[in-house]
Design a protein around this nucleic acid. Structure first.
Lengths: 164, 164
DNA sequence: GGTGAAATGTTGATGCGTCAACTAAATGCG
DNA sequence: CGCATTTAGTTGACGCATCAACATTTCACC
């Protein structure tokens, strides 16, 4: 079975105005599909994707991280981070204490329960990623990675140049 | 300036567990960046991305479309569609009337104001897409498209096979 | 040392995605 | 015909992203 084009998937009759538009739509659609797949996996552990992301960040850190540093390492920066951490603290997966040196900061740490939740989910997540990419050769995967790097670079360039 | 790798961007110290994981993260991150860029453009016209999407669908249709048909053509299917349409109707960009043949159905149509909003935004959106993809050659863009098709196919395959 | 600027984080409002429960209308089938 | 099933759409609840406004604290500079 050959892969379906986006035009098929969104039942679009008319061709895209430009190859670039088609690529953008394909990118957004694909990411949405992948995200939903991952969400389904994480939901079995009662976590959402951003929550999982925060836990990974905190576990990977050498020690406690200030809130904004957590935000900086996420896919999406501020300020939803506060409420996201609120929920994780509420669930007992993260602790948050005021920093004594800089009293503006809150230091976040993953708890043992948090680590346990990660350990439980890690295999499925890993499998999921492999599964999703299974139709791509190693070369294809590397190429995809490179092209995505270029796209992000293009976004940055567009942001620097004030849009019309 | 060479493009930045995702590892740099999310300040990750340790390498990814697998190339697949890295590709998945890169895909999600890139889509998020692109989406935010597009949102910024659409916001100048007071529209969100899904709202723009709905308007495009309705304008592209031959006639009125039932709600679920609109949903089916969107990036994300049901049932947020109802409230999405509620807001568009509220803004006067869409009208919704009950279908006489099948009274369960609501038929949605784009209004002249809706068309005008699209016309106003179309050039910027088009430019934005080109700008974001500007660092990719035509071949690169085609390759990206093909690889994304394969990824979505991988997602479908993973969905058919009950995950661990 | 004191003042203005910058950084850290929180909160409220709004829109969206997702799940689950529900109504209402149409359809299939005996 | 009559009842069960299916389909279309709505609604409520929850989590997240984003914007703007805000309090607190620190920092830089004079």
């Amino acid at each position: 079975m050959p892969p379906r084009s986006i035009r098929d998937e969104i039942k679009q009759r008319r061709p895209f105005e430009s190859a670039e538009q088609e690529a953008v739509v394909a990118l957004l659609r694909t990411a949405s599909d992948v995200a939903r797949r991952i969400d389904a996996t994480l939901a079995t552990g009662g976590l959402t994707q951003p929550q999982y992301n925060v836990l990974r960040i905190l576990r990977g850190a050498d020690g406690p991280l200030p809130t904004m540093e957590v935000a900086a390492r996420m896919v999406t920066p501020t300020p939803g981070i506060t409420r996201l951490l609120d929920r994780l603290v509420g669930a007992g997966l993260v602790t948050r204490v005021a920093c004594r040196k800089d009293r503006r900061r809150m230091l976040c740490t993953i708890t043992d329960d948090g680590r346990a939740a990660l350990d439980r989910l890690a295999p499925s997540v890993s499998e999921g990623a492999v599964g999703v990419m299974s139709r791509l050769s190693a070369d294809d995967t590397a190429t995809l990675l490179r092209l995505l790097d270029e796209v992000r670079e293009g976004v940055r360039a567009a942001e620097r140049a004030p849009t019309t």
